[in-house]
């Protein structure tokens, strides 16, 4: 068990290590591509300064000790937008999946709006909210909403007929059925939607911060590019990947906990 886990870890890091080594070897004098890109050691140094440096009164660079703040801003926006998307998407998805009337009324509109990419929502978001937090949260909500509502709908539609019949036979009212049968039965699909939605949430926050707000990892990414700090750009990208990965892992842990019955099911079969 332990040795196979170690083996999996080793296999997983082979590719990144090789890529970083190659990248380092390809560069001369701390840079490559004619000076356009820094080598990993430069990125690492810049990242350390960005994360742990102490900005004094004479410090001009914004990339000293400001990493945690940028991460915090982005993560907070993702969390807020994602939470709103869950609060809207899960109940709506359950209703669409459960009721033919709601499905006929709402589903076509959702399918029609869904192909509009989050970037296309930027002008409207700026017009309504201006350069403020709301704009970013709005975009994240839109991005995360579709996968959540669509997967929840799917799950609520596919509930085994006899589970609902059994609940009706035991005297359950429509609200009991939704809460105690349809929702738990749809939970596996809902979690699929949450994972995809959260991934899109991280994409949306970067897009929004590049344009619509003046803080966070997305803002730093664009700003650093403008002042020619490609080392910070790359450190920023790695940070986005890291936090996207961590939040996805958290959802998977939550899923394993919430769907213990289902894990046992696949284990027993």
């Amino acid at each position: 068990m332990t040795s196979s886990r170690t083996k999996r870890w080793l296999l997983a890091v082979v590719l990144p290590i090789a890529a970083v080594a190659l990248w380092q070897a390809a560069g001369t004098d701390g840079s490559l591509a004619g000076g356009a890109l820094p080598t990993p050691d430069r990125v690492w140094t810049a990242w350390i300064t960005w994360a742990f440096g102490h900005a004094g009164p004479m410090t001009l660079s914004p990339y000293v000790g400001s990493w945690a703040g940028a991460v915090g801003h982005s993560a907070e926006r993702v969390a807020k937008g994602f939470a709103v998307a869950i609060l809207l998407g899960v109940p709506l998805g359950v209703l669409i999946g459960w009721s033919r009337i709601v499905s006929a009324m709402v589903d076509p509109s959702i399918q029609w709006l869904r192909p509009v990419p989050i970037t296309a929502w930027l002008p409207i978001s700026l017009a309504i909210f201006g350069i403020r937090d709301f704009g970013a949260i709005f975009l994240i909500t839109i991005g995360a909403f579709y996968p959540i509502v669509i997967n929840t709908t799917q799950g609520a539609r596919d509930v085994e007929k006899n589970w609902i019949r059994a609940a009706l036979m035991m005297g359950a009212q429509p609200l009991d059925i939704l809460r105690r049968v349809v929702l738990p039965a749809a939970l596996p699909s809902i979690f699929t939607g949450l994972r995809i939605g959260l991934g899109i949430g991280w994409t949306a926050v970067i897009v929004a911060e590049m344009v619509a707000v003046k803080s966070g990892l997305g803002y730093v990414l664009w700003d650093a590019y403008y002042v020619g700090r490609m080392d910070i750009v790359i450190a920023d990208m790695v940070s986005i990947g890291l936090f996207g990965f961590i939040s996805d892992w958290a959802i998977v842990r939550l899923e394993l906990w919430a769907l213990n019955w289902r894990r046992l099911q696949s284990f027993n079969q």
Binding site: W163, A166, A167, M169, G171, R180, P184, W261, R262
Partner: peptide
């Protein structure tokens, strides 16, 4: 009271919760 062919218990509830589901929702 209906007894289904393959029991059709609610798989996320344990035995006790399945059995008291009826009285509870009533």
């Amino acid at each position: 009271g209906v007894v289904f062919q393959e029991a059709s218990l609610l798989p996320w509830l344990n035995v006790w919760e399945n059995v008291v589901f009826g009285p509870k929702v009533q």
